[in-house]
Design a protein around this nucleic acid. Structure first.
Lengths: 119, 119
DNA sequence: CGTGTTGTCAACCCAATGGTTGAATAACGT
DNA sequence: ACGTTATTCAACCATTGGGTTGACAACACG
């Protein structure tokens, strides 16, 4: 499996968890340490640390190495990748929906014609 | 957990699997039956059926009831939801990145000034 | 009718995930 | 050097997830 595929695997999987999406939402406001983040959740610090690790492995988040206070920072790149993927198929689905719509309109045109003939 | 949250849970989880993303890619070209889809994968029909079910539960895909041939059809709505979510945080992350960039530029300005003073 | 085709259900297996607690590590102030 | 603070590692447990095979259901066609 190529690298890009695995990155998408990890990124989508990371965001499938509501706690992690919430972490992302918080980090979008400002960088924060694991400890600070953990205060907002009803789970152990270790659990939050694990969640942050998952986000990190997915490349959604980076950490500055200035240990002691090593804040977590949101990174835009992988969001780009996901966004591109989704947009691609969203557009195609919509496109095909519009075409189906047109097709149905055509068909009901034909039906109306038949009815006109029948009358 | 509200409904929208669970929908995002399921949608992201659904797309975390490369087989399911590939199914989406195929369905973006044209509707297809489970059997047709299964031909392209090195796994049992039942496994593909399960994958399609997961996509269905996530609302990414619908099935027309015209039994015998009941094709799977891509649906755009949930893609919208995901796209909106991701775009929101992608924009914020980029915004914060640009600001950091500006901040660093300012700092190196100051450094250059100090060096100029020192010389 | 019965038969073939298509799809789903059920039970099972193994790996991965999300949580726990307790111990270990790393950097900092004194 | 020492203890404090912040974070991670390790072991464990329960649940979910992706895959298998085998039996079943639904429908079209002869």
């Amino acid at each position: 499996m190529d690298d890009r595929t695995e990155q998408l695997n990890r990124a989508f999987a990371a965001l499938a968890d509501p706690t992690r999406r919430d972490l992302v939402a918080r980090l979008a406001v400002d960088d924060a340490t694991v400890g600070e983040l953990a205060e907002h959740y009803d789970m152990s610090l270790q659990a939050v640390s694990k969640h942050v690790k998952v986000l990190g492995d997915a490349g959604l988040v980076t950490r500055s190495k200035e240990a002691q206070r090593r804040p977590v920072h949101l990174d835009a790149d992988v969001f780009d990748l996901m966004s591109t993927w989704i947009e691609r198929y969203r557009r195609r689905a919509e496109e095909r929906y519009r075409r189906l719509d047109a097709l149905l309109a055509e068909e009901s045109d034909r039906e109306r014609e038949s009815e006109a003939e029948a009358s």
